[in-house]
Amino acid sequence: MPTPSPSTAAAPAPVFTFDGELEQGGWIRGRVPAGTVEAALGEEPLSLDEDGRFFAAFDRDADPAATLQATLVDGRTVTRPLAIAPRAWDIERVNVARRTGGSSASFMRRRQPELDAIWDARLRETGATGWRQDFIWPVKGRISGRFGAQRIYRGEPGSYHSGIDIATGGSGTPYVAPADGVVVLAAEDFSLEGKLLIIDHGQGLNSAFLHSSRLYVSEGEQVRQGQHIGDIGASGRATGPHLHWSLKWRNSRLDPLLFTGPMR
């Protein structure tokens, strides 16, 4: 049988390539098929760099199935189903009623502008490329609060813990940037978060650092992985000195532990 010439040999099928943590609170990083003009994870459009690379992630309560989809320049569609592993979250059931009544009008007059500033900061596109890096711990210490932990009050779920808490030697302990990025918010006195720092890592991924005693960077500043960006404190609504570090991709809340691996 004659060997097909290069001009008649079948081209390889277009595929997604990626790696990461395919579980609730996890992430993937990869490349779209050649010739892709647009791509999405489910209904969420993906941002692509000049080489067709992308970052995407899965919320704490993500469904067990998701789909990557790409539209090619010739009109074809390429799909890749994903199985998202469930997590056994730390759930505490308490036999007391959840406190009702909500926040006072006077508190919300202060709080709403803070929420708006946080929302706007997380929407900013800075072109940062830290999403490509392997993240490092901003500080090492005792993990005093884990991502996803939640209380259920007589069957009514409360808010789950949206980040990871790291307790160290006390107020003033330095912490560093876990990856490259651009500072999109550096707030000195927010009602709940205290001194709050948000860093955009690009592609819709951002880190927030709460309760600092001091910030060393300002809005618009580029930071590098490992750079000293703040000191741990107990500002805002905190019971003691610790660093609360949270990660979001678009509207999905993510587990920092799945970015760094176990603390060593």
Results as ranks from 00 to 15, higher is better:
S5I: 02
T8N: 10
A9M: 11
A9S: 12
A10H: 05
V15R: 11
F18I: 03
D19C: 05
E23F: 07
G26S: 08
G26L: 05
I28Q: 09
G35K: 10
E38G: 02
A40Y: 11
E43F: 04
E43N: 12
E50C: 06
G52L: 12
F55E: 05
A56D: 07
F58P: 00
P64R: 15
A65L: 11
T71F: 01
V78T: 10
I84C: 10
P86H: 10
A88K: 13
A88R: 13
I91R: 15
I91G: 05
V94S: 07
V94R: 15
R98W: 02
G101K: 01
S104W: 08
F107E: 04
R111F: 06
L115Y: 02
I118D: 00
A121F: 03
A121T: 06
G130P: 00
G130N: 00
W131D: 01
Q133F: 11
I136M: 08
I136F: 03
W137R: 05
G145W: 01
R146I: 14
R151G: 07
R151Q: 14
H161E: 00
H161M: 04
I166R: 09
I166E: 06
G169Y: 01
P174K: 08
P174S: 10
V176H: 14
A177L: 09
G181T: 03
A186V: 03
D189I: 08
D189G: 09
F190E: 11
S191W: 06
E193L: 04
G194C: 13
K195G: 04
L196N: 04
I198F: 09
S212W: 09
S213L: 14
L215E: 05
S218H: 10
E221F: 03
E221G: 04
Q222G: 11
R224I: 02
H228Q: 13
G230F: 03
D231H: 00
I232D: 11
G233W: 13
S235M: 06
S235V: 01
H242E: 08
H244K: 05
N251E: 15
T260I: 14
P262E: 08
M263L: 11
